[in-house]
Write a protein that binds this DNA or RNA. Structure first.
Lengths: 219, 219
DNA sequence: CGTCCCGATGTTGTACGCAACCTAGGGTGC
DNA sequence: GCACCCTAGGTTGCGTACAACATCGGGACG
């Protein structure tokens, strides 16, 4: 705790980022109790910024606060997941469609690159890296959402979806579903390149339907 | 400030409720700077719970925090309002439709009461009380949303809509739009009583379209 | 033997003090 | 006269100490 880069911005930001990462990566199991002092000592901070981070995570829905009883990592039930997909289906296709009218060549190139990389990384074989897909997938959806130029829509999604909680791993995907999922990304890029928002939105609906089927089957 | 019921639950809850109310009621103008010490002294608290309240309000989107520069009441542009209505249109009709399958006679009675009261209070004449409509409207939509049994959907809406910011007053409604709006509430109750979710959802779409027209015209 | 009460212990909630930082105003140099 | 710097004031960010509360264990009573 002496030379652990003490210039990492605001302490509360560090605590927030660290906790969020730990939760989304699954290092902190759902339902786990989060003691303020424990976290503070682990990060070399005082309880104050840790408390602030927990408060913000609670607002995001990643942890739950009980009065005088501390914080717990939120546990998502199958019904919760289903409800989350309802929200995604109501908003993300719309955002994807909107993206068609704002997309630039640079955006297209970046999205194409992400989609192509995912196809390569996700292809069956010795080089398959399902873990790498998580971040790539997250980046793809985030870029797409930003493209929609709809801050309210993005905020509504961000405060509910927690993509990596929902899509924490692609290991639960069977081969066919995974192939479909990766193809969808490429097809969305094609639709955006064609300037067809309806097409892009429809693909997103397929994408989410496919994902929902995998998720619901899982639990 | 000596005997102002010092047993009002957690101090941070008081600060949160007080600030939220002040913002939603318009007592704190959009863009106003919120000094922590000023608020703390006004409420007779220390800065700590005030900070926590501001953090939570920032997560809700009601205030904006800038590092080392304090908090400001969020200013909503016309585009923001438009985006908010996009989200509402994507989610609230769906929630209303879902409500049809969970509604109980008690719920129907309560919603009917709210709708009827609003019709009476909002009717043109000497007894018209447009200010009372705000809270009634809020209660109606909140009860309806709770009925949907869709926590994710409710969370997505809550973190974006801030109903009273959007519907801070009914004074901007012209007579025809106001009459339509109040009639919609009653029609939603009728649709729910008939157990017809599609109908109820459609009315909600009308309700929001009507409101959007008034809001967009306003600014 | 079971149940209830009460103290011990660890946790969260709040207050307060200090350091870091941003902003504004006056002064100096060009 | 204008631009820049530098100091002073005030605010936020964080650390620390204490108070309030919840939980758990032991002991006494029925």
């Amino acid at each position: 705790m002496t030379s652990t880069e003490r210039r990492a911005g605001r302490a509360s930001e560090r605590a927030l980022a660290d906790l969020r990462e730990a939760i989304l990566d699954g290092d902190l199991a759902a339902g786990a109790h989060l003691g303020e002092v424990e976290i503070a000592e682990r990060l070399g901070l005082s309880r104050t910024p840790v408390r602030e981070a927990l408060t913000r995570l609670a607002a995001e829905g990643l942890v739950e606060l009980e009065a005088h009883r501390g914080a717990r990592v939120t546990r998502f039930s199958r019904e919760d997941l289903d409800g989350i997909f309802d929200v995604r289906l109501a908003l993300e296709p719309q955002a994807t469609a909107r993206a068609a009218q704002y997309v630039t060549p640079d955006d297209l190139a970046a999205l194409d690159d992400l989609a192509t990389t995912m196809l390569a990384v996700g292809a069956p074989g010795p080089d398959q890296d399902l873990d790498a897909l998580v971040d790539l997938n997250r980046a793809f959806h985030a870029r797409l959402l930003a493209l929609a130029h709809a801050p309210a829509l993005a905020a509504a999604l961000a405060n509910v979806v927690h993509t990596p909680v929902v899509t924490r791993t692609f290991r639960t995907y069977d081969a066919d579903s995974l192939a479909r999922s990766l193809a969808h990304h490429a097809e969305i890029v094609a639709a955006l390149r064609a300037g067809d928002g309806d097409w892009a939105g429809a693909v997103m609906r397929c994408h989410l339907g496919n994902a929902r089927a995998v998720m619901v089957e899982e639990q």
